[in-house]
Design a protein around this nucleic acid. Structure first.
Length: 417
DNA sequence: TTTCCACTGGAAGCCACGGCGG
DNA sequence: CCGCCGTGGCTTCCAGTGGAAA
């Protein structure tokens, strides 16, 4: 027997479950596709393209529809000599300012050798580079800004559509496609930007459980060998996706995770139990990712909340988290943050879904305040924190802390941290 | 009805850091 | 090397908020 051996494969083509997979047909988005297509029509007519704004929750097919239509558009534009179509796709996840978008766009337009740094230049210089690069490219340029809601200022969204009118551009015709998960983003745009960016708006509603089932079946027939999925698997994945705001991405990820487990465990079928465990694994991954993105003080605040929870002191108001938190900062040899800032960290934990918040109001005697509690399997958080603080085992120290339940035994760990 | 508590959440501004051109 | 630039994490300040108490 060789050292390597092929797994008993449940998969026929695992790639069909990956994020970048482009299905033949998009399920349940006929109306939206039709509107979208109409909005893109001017490109083929070699006219100034529309700016298009797409909104809808995560995983409802906005990006998929965009990739689908733009690849067709690109193919179909080939046959007309007077169209020089260029597509730029930029995901704004992790970008917070127009400045950063501008630098990324410049880099998209340039080859490997001429990339620019993402900091250091005056703002105006970056725009200058962007205009000249766009003009060099010329023709019709469609710029897709995926997840635009991540950026906090809209100056680039104001500048881009107007570049031609302001004579920054003479050659290129620009069309912007903005994709947002957050509907309120649209309302927060300044009126000037809203009127130009939102010329054409397309709303993508959430998928319902039966849409999700169809999508999953479509992918599953490509991805898996026939008959390897137990009957309950697809409905279960669909149900979880539907519960979480009709998110197809999440359903498909879950199906893939279950398939991966089946592969690892060398079973010939994918079972509901593997879906169940897959869900936990994905959840854990999400939490871990969230926690690893926090600052040290974020960790210390979580730590404080965690120990309070272990003592059944939750829900707690921020005022009562504070003494525990300051004690931990001292153990970790840091200066405690000001209360206002500590509350920011608490809200951040709440946004990640690690912590739940209840607003309370005791009127004239007590005023308004918020109460926090851990809203997640504690062992999940402990193991995630454990991975991040790699020094002396946090898990052990926390366990012993639980046992003794008075002065924390975690001095060593925190001091190292 | 008015008062008032104890926060909340927005805003302005500071500062260290890393990268820029000269 | 300098002086300039944008950014993230922070502090400081303060006008709201909403419901129990008066």
């Amino acid at each position: 027997m060789g050292l390597f051996e092929r797994d008993t494969e449940v998969y026929k083509d695992r790639d069909a479950l990956r994020e970048d997979y482009q299905p033949e047909k998009l399920v349940g988005r006929d109306e939206e596709i039709q509107m979208y297509q109409a909005a893109l029509q001017p490109v083929i007519n070699s006219e100034q393209p529309n700016n298009i704004f797409l909104y809808g929750k995560t995983g409802v097919g906005k990006t998929a529809a965009t990739k689908y239509l733009l690849s067709h558009l690109e193919d179909d534009a080939e046959q007309y000599d007077d169209i020089d179509l260029n597509l730029i796709f930029l995901n704004c996840d992790g970008l917070t300012s127009s400045y950063q978008i501008a630098t990324r766009l410049v880099n998209e337009l340039r080859d490997e050798a001429n990339q620019i740094s993402t900091t250091g230049y005056p703002r105006a210089t970056v725009y200058e580079m962007l205009w000249s690069d766009l003009d060099n490219l010329g023709g019709t340029v469609i710029i897709v800004l995926d997840e635009v809601d991540h950026v906090k200022d809209d100056s680039i969204l104001y500048q881009l559509p107007r570049a031609r009118a302001n004579e920054n551009l003479t050659e290129a015709k620009i069309g912007i496609i903005g994709i947002s998960n957050d509907f309120s983003f649209r309302d927060d745009l300044s009126p000037k930007v809203k009127s130009s960016l939102c010329e054409q708006e397309i709303h993508f509603p959430a998928y319902d459980a039966s849409n999700l089932k169809q999508i999953l079946e479509q992918r599953a027939t490509v991805a898996f060998h026939e008959g390897v999925l137990s009957d309950g698997v697809i409905p279960l994945c669909a149900a979880y996706g539907a519960k979480d705001a009709g998110d197809a991405r999440q359903s498909i990820d879950l199906l893939m995770k279950a398939g991966d487990l089946a592969r690892e465990e060398d079973t010939s079928t994918v079972t509901e139990d593997q879906v169940e465990r897959g869900r936990r694994a994905l959840e854990r991954g999400r939490i871990e990712e969230g926690i690893s993105g926090l600052t040290q003080h974020g960790h210390l605040v979580l730590y404080a909340l965690l120990t309070l929870d272990l003592e059944n002191e939750t829900p707690v108001r921020s005022r009562d988290v504070r003494p525990r938190y300051t004690r931990f900062t001292r153990l970790a040899q840091r200066d405690p943050l000001v209360p206002r800032r500590m509350r920011d960290h608490l809200s951040e934990l709440a946004m990640l879904g690690i912590v739940s918040v209840t607003e309370r109001n005791e009127g004239r005697r007590g005023g308004t305040y918020r109460e926090y509690a851990i809203d997640m399997d504690l062992s999940l958080i402990i193991s995630a924190l454990d991975d991040i603080i790699t020094e002396v085992g946090v898990h052990d120290s926390l366990s012993s802390y639980l046992d003794t339940a008075n002065e924390p035994q975690i001095t060593g760990t925190l001091a190292d941290y």
